[in-house]
Nucleic acid binder design. Structure first.
Lengths: 125, 125
DNA sequence: CGGGATCCCCATTGATACTG
DNA sequence: CAGTATCAATGGGGATCCCG
């Protein structure tokens, strides 16, 4: 059972040039970290200046409070964002991007660029 | 039921600056097209020169024939790749990238870059 | 080699309602 | 405003076997 799977893995690694292998894994790592429909839009929203919970929620079409809540918690644990509580009446809670979060900037920009170009293409059909 | 949802959508759109709205949607479009764990690694593999089915399969750690088969079919339908049958004995089948497929190049490069940087970061902890 | 067919699980997401 | 709780569904993905 397990041996078969391991053998397959080993064969995969051996049959693949070293440098290509490294790149595929890096790519898969990134896909894993950014997994799901929401992380990138959330990062984008916060980096765009949205700070409050409802503000972020409204800025992302289709997201539910539940998903936003879960993702924010996870992203805070992963040091992607910072949660700040300001004890006013009523309390104010703000989310802000960390430096690490900013490192996704180029990926997001490229994806927005692609999405826009894609829309243009569709429109022309 | 439906009205509530539509009202929410409308409120979302109205509360969001025009340009921001456009970018979020472009971003979500891209995420949708690239959805799942495999499309980007497959594109990357084919753009890297892998052509045969087993070759592509071996170049992507963890993928199964079923997933690869499904994704290839879908991507062919979406004009992302071209499938060619060479009637030798036995028949040879090759997949190649279309121009459209190449348009993901920058996204993939950015993601590989991020993945590599992330690995370095983890190693240093 | 290049897949197709089946069975099945569970993680992700959604909908809705409720709270301090 | 800023979430939490609960229930339900769907489909992405894995495992396995099979075929020409």
């Amino acid at each position: 059972m397990e041996d078969k799977k391991r053998l397959k893995m080993i064969r995969e690694v051996l049959s693949n040039p070293r440098n290509q292998q490294e790149e595929v894994q890096a790519l898969q790592d990134t896909i894993y970290v950014l997994g799901g429909k929401w992380k990138l839009p959330i990062i984008n929203s916060i980096c765009n200046g949205n700070r409050r919970f409802r503000e972020i929620e409204r800025s992302i079409p289709g997201i539910t409070t539940r998903m936003l809540s879960r993702e924010l918690k996870e992203m805070e644990a992963n040091q992607l964002i910072k949660r700040t509580v300001t004890p006013d009446i009523p309390v104010m809670i703000t989310y802000s991007p960390t430096d690490y979060c900013q490192s996704f900037g180029d990926i997001i920009l490229e994806m927005i660029k692609w999405g826009k170009a894609h829309r243009e293409l569709i429109k022309r059909l």
